[in-house]
Structures are given as C-alpha cells and as structure tokens.
Amino acid sequence: MHLTQELELFPEHRVTLLLFKEVKNAAELRKSAMEGKINGALINPTMLVDPFQVLVAANKAVHLQKIEKMKTRNLYSEIIFNLSPTNNISEAFKRFGISDGDDSVMVVVVHNKDESQLLTDIVAKVDGQQVSVEDISSMSDSAKIKKLYKVTPQEEKCGTLLDAVVCRMATKDVL
C-alpha cells in the first residue's frame, strides 16, 4: 500500500508515502500537525502527479536540513514548500498543504530504517481508508497542476507532466 524509498544521498534515511481517501478528520489532522504532534507532512493529493514528485521534494528537504539552509521551520514544512513552483511560503501551504474540508490526504514520513512504529502511529491517527500510493494519479487534477506550474502544451511534447513539474521544483531557487 505505502511506498518506501531509500534516499541514495542519505542512506540512513527512508521516505515513506501513505495515501488515504474518504478522510473524515482532516481538520483534526491539520491541527495536530501544526502542534507538531504528527511526525509527517500532510499533503493535498490534487496537486500531485506521481509519487516521484514527493520524493524529489523530500530529498531536497533533507539536503537543505543537513546544510542548514531550510527556508521554513522544519523538515515537514520544507517538503511542502519544495513542492511549490514559487518561493512564496504561504502560497505553497495553501496549494499543497491540507485544508479542513479535504477528504483525501498524502502523508510523507522521513524515518530511519527501523522506525516502522511511526507508520503505525500515522495510520492510527487518520480516520479514512488507506489506498495504494499508486492511486495518486486518479486523485490528481492535471488541469490545475498545469496551470499552477505554468506547463505549456509544447513542453509536454518533449516530456511528461511529471518531468515538467520536477524540473521546476528542482530549479526554482535560481529562477
């Protein structure tokens, strides 16, 4: 169901993605996250094309944490910020964070090899149905994504929407 990826650059770290639909306690989850009671980033899946997009954001966040150059308060807010095509922090939270009325959520956890308890804790907190992370494509809104990332039809000729999105995320610091 979930997807766990090792970060080649940080071999002691894993990133795990969990996806939920029919979520009934988004407001409560958001509040817990703000209070630091959830060890993960809560993301609105509509703006996600593919799990790889989230992994790219997580890798960059861990890197910036290590070199002490994060733009936001903590690793999880940094992951949300990294997903955004712009350098505006509040805009990033509005687009990629969850809102109280949301009924689906992607949770991103950065952990050690042997921290499976973290995942169990997350699943217990979400009042919703866990689905396979691969289902993300059925939840995403590609029209909205193209608009936010300003993806042109010509760009899609030389690559996928995921390519376009990842390229912008990776280069936004120097645009």
Binding site: G159, D163, C167, V174
Partner: peptide
C-alpha cells in the same frame, strides 16, 4: 524544455 526543445530533466541541484 518550456519551448519543447529536448534537454534532460533536472532532478536535483
């Protein structure tokens, strides 16, 4: 890439 000219995707810098 924005203009539809192929170049490798940038993953991370």
């Amino acid at each position: 890439r924005k203009a539809g000219i192929s170049a490798p995707v940038v993953y991370f810098v």
